[in-house]
Amino acid sequence: MTRDEALFEFLLRMGDNTLILGHRVSEWCGHSPVLEEDIALANTALDMIGQTQLWLGLAGEVEGKGRTADNLAFLRDAWDFRNVLMVELPNGDFGQTLMRQFLYDAWSFVMTDWLKGSADERIAAIAEKAHKEVTYHLERSGDTVIGLGDGTEESHRRMQAALDYLYPYCGEMFEKDKADELLAEAGIAPDPAELRAEYDDIVGRVLAEATLAIPGGDYVHKGGRNGRMHTEHLGHLLTSMQWLQRAYPGAAW
């Protein structure tokens, strides 16, 4: 594996996470519990689609085969996607959506914070912009997790159920393979495992305030970030997301 191949892999992982999660969040449009949440969710999705354009745009450039961000988003099949499994899971209720957002935002916060100092200036520039947005996303999703965890009996029960369901998917964000090793050696991207301590610290603080208990057991669901085995859900998501580009190939929109 060359360094550019590793870089391409890494950029797909970054861009596919934001693309798929941005897509999921956008599914809430017009259906939120309160108008302020409709606005906030649309805003979050918008930021993530913006980040996708940057990550996948750079991925196409690094790959050097003339593929654009749109080509990568709309014309790859499920096995070529490199997002972690957690972001492709269906939204569930509002609590599950916000719990997933929080568990992802905390990782994204730590990750983009590191990447601001990447040896690759193009990555550092994207991370600089993304980190500002992610900081705000994390504040909001963290506050919501706290509010609902420490709210009513029902909201607490739902948030604990969401955490129990999602927590086993968190570990995948810290998995490491050959591509990660190559980029870590070059100072381009972090060794994912190194981000874990700070992540645990953020997540631990918020969940404690939310009066929620981190589930026991150390089983980790994985297979998304290396493309080995996605969930059944991704194919359905791509079916609607890619439909126009697939139905009318070559058209300009």
Partner: peptide
């Protein structure tokens, strides 16, 4: 929104719907 044909069109539509709300 979930079927917008490009990332840019998706972003524009999201921004618009957010404005309406």
């Amino acid at each position: 929104i979930t079927r917008a044909p490009t990332l840019e069109r998706k972003a524009i539509l999201l921004a618009k719907v957010q404005d309406e709300a």
